[in-house]
């Protein structure tokens, strides 16, 4: 087994890296976590490819939802969670509609994203949405141009949501704080800025 080469040369180590799948590469708990979060029997995938064939992101990228299903089954946690393609699912659910094993590959992707977040792996735009909701209750908050337009339409400048009733925002914050979501988002965003 030449899994570790100890050439003492990073470039060489990378070029000659052993890409084999070994028994101990598997984290069986990963599959169990994915199943629990996604509420689908991810282990039952038989790799037919209907999902990738249904996927609008697949033709324009290296994203293959089938491969994520496979990596889930094999317990290839790090590999799946560190793959930037994980974030290319538009959650259109076409694969879920067509899966012959009645699985929800889309929800598997969502579960893997949830698990990635636990390792601080998450694109910045997702975290910014978190901050916006935390601060205003809205992921896409109001702005002045829109306020003026609303008034012209005979609508109140701010909608009757948390915008008009900011007293509801602390409740939203409490819920998010319960899961330390804002805290984590802030931390990850600030670490990224270094």
């Amino acid at each position: 087994m030449a899994k570790v080469k100890e050439y003492g040369n990073a470039e060489l180590e990378e070029k000659l890296r052993d890409t084999s799948y070994y028994t101990d590469d598997s984290n069986p708990q990963f599959l169990e976590d994915v199943k629990k979060i996604s509420r689908t029997a991810a282990n039952m995938c038989f790799q037919c490819g209907t999902c990738t064939g249904s996927c609008p992101s697949a033709p324009r990228s290296s994203y293959r939802i089938r491969l994520f299903m496979r990596k889930g089954v094999l317990g290839l946690e790090k590999e799946a969670l560190n793959d930037p393609d994980l974030w290319l699912c538009t959650t259109c659910y076409s694969c879920t509609d067509r899966c012959p094993r009645d699985l929800a590959p889309t929800d598997v992707i969502m579960a893997m994203r949830n698990l990635a977040f636990k390792f601080d792996i998450v694109p910045r735009n997702f975290l910014k949405t978190v901050q916006l909701i935390y601060n205003s209750g809205h992921g896409v908050p109001n702005n002045d141009v829109n306020r003026a337009a609303r008034v012209k339409l005979g609508l109140p400048a701010d909608p009757p949501t948390t915008h008009s009733y900011p007293e509801f925002i602390p409740g939203i914050q409490k819920i998010m704080d319960f899961y330390k979501m804002k805290e984590n988002a802030d931390r990850i965003l600030s670490e990224g800025e270094h």
Binding site: M1, T19, S20, Y21, Y22, T23, R66, L67, R70
Partner: peptide
Amino acid sequence: LIVNTEDTLLGRPVAME
């Protein structure tokens, strides 16, 4: 026993004990 094959669905060699 070390079983060598390819996971053809993943496209990579496999060496499983």
